[in-house]
């Protein structure tokens, strides 16, 4: 995004605008990293094929990012409407956007925000995955039903061979069954336990957050060493 907007401000100074939104290198990196990590978790836990895992991971991460942006705009708009003067929150936010700087108090609230975001994004991702799967499957029912019948036959055959504790069809949601089937079709491993999707999303989220945290810590370390070198 190398867009430059020239707009003269209304201030006395008549300056022309002088910035371009950078493509936000750090968050791009974090975004791609998160997708990679989550895709590999899906691949392992949901037994989806690699391409499918990447598509799942990228879709739900996109969904999450978009939600995040929308929430950000909502919060800022509400903040602007509610307070006439500049609030401390706005100052902190501008410090962060323009100067990449945060105070001790801001760091505390940032950690708190990350903590909340973890659970919020977990919910959003689970929701995203469920709706994605629904979007991908809904409406394709005619062929589906036939397949399902076949599948059920297969399953019952398999169940008779597998141990009984694992197989409780009443508990299983259709989504899981879909995943289960695709895993069966992909790599027919009889007797392998398929963990629930919720668990997979939780793990994926946890892993990607750990990765992001590691990246950020590394960045802090690099920055700290830079600033110590500088006079």
């Amino acid at each position: 995004m190398s867009l430059t907007f020239h707009v003269s401000t209304r201030s006395q100074l008549h300056v022309s605008e002088c910035f371009a939104p950078s493509s936000d290198r750090l968050s791009d990196f974090v975004f791609v990293g998160a997708i990679a990590v989550e895709a590999s978790v899906f691949h392992r836990l949901l037994k989806t094929d690699p391409k499918q895992s990447i598509l799942y991971a990228s879709s739900i991460n996109l969904f999450c990012t978009v939600l995040g942006w929308i929430v950000f705009f909502l919060i800022f708009n509400a903040e602007e409407v509610s307070s006439g003067s500049t609030s401390q929150f706005e100052i902190d936010m501008m410090n962060f956007i323009f100067f990449d700087r945060w105070s001790r108090q801001t760091a505390t609230s940032l950690i708190l925000i990350c903590f909340v975001t973890f659970f919020a994004s977990f919910g959003a991702k689970e929701l995203g995955l469920i709706s994605l799967q629904w979007l991908l499957k809904a409406g394709i029912k005619q062929e589906e039903k036939k397949e399902e019948k076949k599948e059920k036959k297969k399953e019952t055959e398999e169940e008779s061979t597998e141990d009984l504790t694992e197989q409780k069809p009443s508990l299983r949601t259709p989504v899981i069954r879909v995943l289960r089937r695709s895993s069966r079709l992909g790599q027919p491993q009889v007797g392998e336990k398929t963990p629930s999707q919720l668990r997979a999303v939780l793990f994926a989220n946890a892993w990607s957050y750990s990765a992001i945290l590691a990246i950020l810590l590394l960045r802090f370390a690099v920055q700290a060493s830079y600033s110590s070198i500088e006079p």
Binding site: T4, C18, A20, S22, I97, F98
Partner: peptide, 12 residues
């Protein structure tokens, strides 16, 4: 000074 910013780049 915007040099540290991750969001904006100075063009002027």
């Amino acid at each position: 000074d915007f040099d540290r910013s991750q969001f904006v780049v100075r063009t002027n």
